[in-house]
């Protein structure tokens, strides 16, 4: 039985501002996994996630994501992964619904997809007509996640997705990630909340000083 490998990194070095933030990372992720990246601040988790999304050049080693060689073509992978970093990528002056409709128009999703995603993240009703600038941090996070759902990414890359969410929001997030996995997506996420995150994850990896080891 062969398992489809979604991601395969071998001795990857990523240089950011002349600093090797990732210094020889080797790991792979199979389809349908929910992988947790643990590690201290500055260990290289964020850089690793951004590189998986094809945003950063690979200085050395080989990196393959969803069948695309990141050394040769970083652009090809982008429309198929969804990255949620520390910023939410929302427009502050637009309402939640307008932000969602903007994204749906870009990726060719239907209004129905948008409504479903907003329902899933508890953003329908009064909240949908609220400007993003007036939302709480947790509500913004949910809005950003909803736009990932609309994008139908095959590989979800989430940097500290639990940060800023209340207990209810965290439960919703966990449910959303499991639902995404059940729908065929693969999830890699970084988190400091080991207990909650370990319960969610199917496997944990430790990122330390720019390298990756099994937990």
């Amino acid at each position: 039985m062969t398992v489809e490998k979604v991601l395969e990194f071998s001795d990857v070095v990523i240089v950011y501002d002349n600093f090797p933030a990732v210094a020889g990372a080797t790991f792979s992720v199979n389809a349908g996994e929910i992988v947790l990246l643990q590690g201290a601040n500055g260990a290289g988790k964020t850089t690793l996630l951004r590189a998986c999304a094809g945003l950063l050049p690979i200085a050395r080693g080989s990196a393959n994501v969803l069948g695309c060689d990141l050394r040769l073509d970083r652009l090809a992978v982008r429309s198929r992964v969804g990255l949620l970093g520390h910023a939410n990528g929302l427009f502050q002056d637009l309402t939640v619904l307008e932000n969602m409709l903007f994204w749906s128009r870009l990726v060719g999703a239907t209004r129905n997809d948008v409504d479903q995603a907003m329902d899933a993240m508890g953003l329908s009703g009064r909240l949908s007509e609220t400007q993003v600038a007036k939302l709480s941090a947790g509500q913004r996070r949910r809005c950003a996640l909803a736009s990932l759902i609309v994008r139908r990414a095959q590989l979800w890359l989430l940097d500290e997705p639990h940060a800023g969410l209340d207990a209810q929001g965290r439960d919703e997030l966990d449910r959303t990630l499991r639902a995404a996995r059940d729908a065929g997506a693969t999830v890699i996420f970084a988190s400091h909340e080991i207990e909650r995150a370990s319960a969610l994850a199917t496997r944990s990896l430790v990122v330390a000083s720019g390298t990756v080891k099994p937990a």
Binding site: V13, V15, P20, A23, G24, A208, S209, G210
Partner: peptide
């Protein structure tokens, strides 16, 4: 020079993790 600095920096970064 930046590149050779990189070799040293990669080693230093990896050794960080060993000593931890």
């Amino acid at each position: 020079a930046n590149q050779s600095g990189l070799d040293a920096a990669i080693l230093a970064r990896q050794n960080e993790s060993v000593s931890n």
